[in-house]
């Protein structure tokens, strides 16, 4: 069977996200979750873990707070909590699946401007991340004492400035490279 292209997958993902916010029955959402997990193929456990990590604390905070509120007011809270948790979880799993299986470079093939922007920003983000990681390793390898709040703020500041210098230099190189290849049409 021919699998849909990346642009179609992205469109399908966007449509499904909207559809999920229009469903208010926990059973249907549970069914949707089961279908998504089944269709997502190999690496389901990793996908669930990846999806659950960013929303876990949000859901825990909302659920525990709402449970306490329900306990204090005596109102039933389990049904709405189930609905909210399931919906957020379905959307998180769907997004994690999309992030794993949709190649945005290919999905945006019809929009070269957006694609170019994506490539440049993603490249810069990787550069900044590597710089942050290098700096973090450099600092932790030189001391066994955990950084104080002041040191952590100073570290963030130093990373910001170093990243900016490196990033702007890199951007200038990119501009020259793009111009030399005729991408700027001048």
């Amino acid at each position: 069977m021919r699998t849909p292209g990346h642009s179609a997958r992205l469109a399908l993902y966007l449509g499904t996200v909207i559809a999920v916010t229009l469903v208010h029955h926990p059973v249907l959402l549970l069914l949707a979750l089961a279908v998504i997990v089944l269709l997502s193929g190999d690496g389901r456990a990793g996908l669930l873990l990846r999806a659950g990590r960013p929303v876990f604390w949000v859901l825990l905070l909302i659920s525990s707070g709402y449970l306490v509120m329900g306990w204090l007011t005596g109102e039933p809270v389990l049904a709405p909590l189930l609905l909210i948790n399931l919906r957020v979880l379905v959307l998180a799993v769907l997004t994690a699946w999309m992030v794993r299986d949709v190649d945005l470079d290919r999905a945006l093939v019809r929009w070269p401007g957006a694609r170019r922007w994506l490539v440049i920003v993603r490249g810069q983000v990787r550069l900044f991340r590597r710089l942050v990681q290098d700096y973090h390793f450099a600092q932790t390898s030189r001391t066994v004492v955990p950084a104080t709040l002041r040191q952590r703020y100073r570290r963030s500041a130093a990373i910001g400035l170093a990243a900016l210098d490196k990033g702007v230099h890199n951007a200038e190189m990119v501009t020259l490279a793009m111009r030399s290849r005729g991408a700027l049409h001048d």
Partner: peptide, 26 residues
């Protein structure tokens, strides 16, 4: 212009990183 796009991308990427950096609070 197209020429400034890479520089804008640098600052957009910085905004991306800034919004991913967790700031410790008291």
């Amino acid at each position: 212009g197209d020429e400034a796009l890479p520089r804008l991308a640098v600052f957009a990427a910085l905004a991306f990183v800034l919004s991913s950096l967790m700031l410790p609070l008291p």
